[in-house]
């Protein structure tokens, strides 16, 4: 049996050939998947229940037409505002990161000039530094720029944090592009800006997707910087707004769970659609 099992395994046929060994691994995977999904399923189920239903039968399948909790959140809280704020902050940061990151990566990757190695090193140095520990000077800096309690503070910090990984990923990719097209365009007298914009940039989209996903998830989910920079309730992003909201409704568990469900929904839905790109993007820093 084991010879068959080995060949199945190594040839990656994925057959249930070796029941013993593979059975154990399959059980581990199924058990793990249940543990991974159960909390999320309970969260979604509870979002459709009243508080007393949650206490009495937390695991039962709810009546999905009971959307009272969601209506309450939509009408009685600042939730929609938080959601919009998160979209604005994340969107602006991503636009800046991808624009500036591509600019730097293009210069470093396509041109030979003095100091390009140094500039790349400069960006890479920012890759591993835990910026949380510099929160005190950052706070003072934002105060001096008078953008405390202003979403620009978040957008600027996220942009700076996103640039090192983006420059790193994009430079590597841009360097691999062939130079024939570029040379041909240059012969035809195209300007450098035109070459970059019309010829090279369309080719770097795959790397932009990877760099984009790697940055968009931590920015969308971030809580630390809003906690320090933003006080005004109308400016809060979703994770930060969630703390306000959870504090207000402590006893209404139905509303709490639907708030969590609503906050988790956008990213879960996008993840399920684009799981391959998400996994590639979020592990790209760690996978050579």
């Amino acid at each position: 049996m084991s010879a068959v099992a080995e060949s199945n395994y190594y040839e990656r046929r994925g057959l249930l050939g070796a029941l013993g060994r593979d059975g154990l691994l399959q059980i581990i995977l199924i058990a793990n998947t249940i543990i991974m999904l159960a909390p999320i399923v309970i969260m979604v189920f509870s979002a459709f229940k009243s508080t007393s239903q949650i206490f009495q039968s937390p695991f039962s399948i709810p009546d999905f037409t009971q959307v009272g909790n969601f209506v309450k959140i939509w009408t009685e809280t600042n939730f929609v505002r938080y959601l919009l704020n998160s979209f604005v902050v994340t969107g602006a940061s991503m636009a800046l990161i991808l624009t500036l990151g591509t600019m730097a990566a293009y210069a470093i990757g396509r041109y030979r000039f003095t100091g390009s190695a140094f500039i790349l090193m400069f960006f890479l140095a920012g890759l591993t530094l835990p910026l949380k520990l510099a929160i005190i000077p950052l706070f003072m800096l934002m105060r001096d720029l008078s953008i405390l309690n202003n979403q620009l503070s978040l957008i600027f910090v996220y942009t700076a944090m996103g640039l090192p990984t983006t420059v790193f990923i994009m430079t590597g990719f841009i360097r691999t592009l062939p130079s024939e097209l570029e040379d041909a365009a240059r012969m035809d007298g195209a300007s450098e800006a035109r070459i970059m914009w019309s010829i090279m940039l369309p080719l770097v989209r795959p790397a932009m997707v990877i760099a984009g996903i790697q940055n968009v998830v931590p920015i969308w989910n971030d809580f630390f910087f809003p906690l320090v920079f933003i006080q005004n309730d109308n400016l809060k992003t979703l994770p930060q707004g969630l703390t306000t909201f959870m504090g207000e409704y402590t006893t209404d568990w139905g509303v709490l769970f639907s708030g969590l469900t609503l906050s988790a929904a956008p990213i879960i839905i996008i993840y399920i659609i684009l799981s391959k790109q998400f996994i590639a993007g979020m592990t790209s820093g760690a996978v050579k």
Binding site: M36, L37, P39, I40, V217, W220, N221, F223, L238, P239, Q240, L242, T243, S263, A264, I267, I268, Y271, S275, F278, I279, M282
Partner: peptide, 9 residues
């Protein structure tokens, strides 16, 4: 990987 994409909050 699903929990990884969720906000820590």
């Amino acid at each position: 990987f699903l929990p990884v994409v969720l906000s820590t909050i």
